[in-house]
């Protein structure tokens, strides 16, 4: 009897002990969970706080530097003006040349990969090359552009050299976005067109390109965003000049002359020139541009999704 009782009591106490340890385990788990939740929220807060403080700081420091004359005149000690009109023009010219050449090539590459190519060695090499190209940092593009377009082809420091360099840089962006868009065009469109007697090129021109236009435009806008923000690839290819052409006829030769974009000018203003007013002024303009570009791609992507759901 006594034995049994003592056995029972040990069983009870063992149960109790395991219960207590379970409770303390659960408590420990709660504390652990709480700590991890804290870090998760903290991390997410960091991104938001960072972005907010970047925007606020730049706006506070730079909003009063941006004015009509800042945007429409060129910095000149002689005239006593401070402005970035030359840099804006350079940026626009580089965007135009780059996109005029890069868009057809990028779209063409995507069409080949998606519509013509059969899986094989050639395709995997192209895909490897595109992948590699998108992983190469802009400073390497800058070096290569300086050596190849600048020296070997003899374009020197010019807007053309800068644009040719940037074409290589934005090509993967356009190819990939177009490819994604082409993949969402239903096969029935292709079968329908071919079945009605259309040639492949005709089908691509009249059916595929229009249907994948939102994707192509998204790629183009992203590429423009990349060009607007680019500096390392342009420093040694397009140089840093900031003069405006006097007449419209001077605009064309400008392509073969050196010219710094807004981003390059910001870098020079903040470092060698020590002109922080101009730097923050440009930073405000850039932030606004980047924000608009971001908004535009989002709007497009949303529209794109709707067409896909149909």
């Amino acid at each position: 009897m006594i034995n049994q009782a003592s056995i029972q009591s040990t069983i009870v106490s063992k149960d109790l002990a395991s219960n207590i340890s379970l409770v303390s385990k659960l408590n420990k788990r709660k504390i652990k969970d709480g700590i991890l939740y804290f870090f998760i929220y903290l991390s997410a807060a960091i991104s938001v706080v960072l972005l907010a403080s970047i925007i606020i700081y730049v706006l506070v420091k730079g909003y009063d530097k941006v004015s009509l004359s800042f945007l429409t005149s060129v910095t000149s000690v002689l005239k006593g003006t401070v402005g970035i009109a030359g840099n804006i023009l350079n940026t626009v010219i580089i965007i135009l040349i780059t996109m005029l050449i890069a868009t057809p090539i990028g779209v063409g590459a995507a069409i080949y990969l998606n519509e013509y190519a059969k899986p094989g060695r050639f395709v995997s090499i192209i895909e490897f090359a595109t992948e590699t190209l998108s992983g190469i940092p802009s400073i390497i593009f800058g070096l290569f552009g300086m050596m190849f377009f600048g020296q070997t082809l003899g374009f020197g420091y010019s807007l053309l050299t800068g644009s040719l360099t940037l074409i290589l840089m934005v090509l993967p962006l356009i190819t990939r976005n177009t490819q994604e868009a082409l993949k969402t065009v239903p096969d029935s469109y292709r079968h329908g067109a071919i079945g009605l007697g259309s040639g492949k090129w005709h089908m691509i021109r009249t059916i595929l390109i229009p249907s994948s236009l939102p994707g192509i435009i998204t790629g183009v806008i992203l590429a423009i965003g990349r060009i607007v923000g680019e500096s390392a690839a342009l420093l040694f290819t397009a140089g840093s000049a900031k003069i405006l052409p006097n007449t419209l006829a001077d605009l064309f030769p400008k392509v073969f002359q050196s010219g710094g974009t807004m981003t390059v000018q910001l870098y020079l203003s903040a470092t060698s020139e020590g002109d922080f007013d101009t730097a923050f002024g440009i930073a405000v303009v850039l932030l606004v541009l980047v924000f608009l570009i971001n908004l535009a791609t989002k709007k497009l992507a949303a529209r794109f999704d709707v067409t896909r759901r149909k």
């Binding site: 991104s47 938001v48 923000g229 730097a279 930073a283 971001n294």
Partner: peptide, 23 residues
């Protein structure tokens, strides 16, 4: 709120990060 913030961080030109680091 957080997702667009992260996306915008990616879009900010690197010279602006440099400028803020400097200041």
């Amino acid at each position: 709120i957080v997702q667009p913030a992260v996306e915008l961080l990616a879009a900010i030109p690197s010279v602006i990060y440099g400028l803020l680091g400097l200041m």
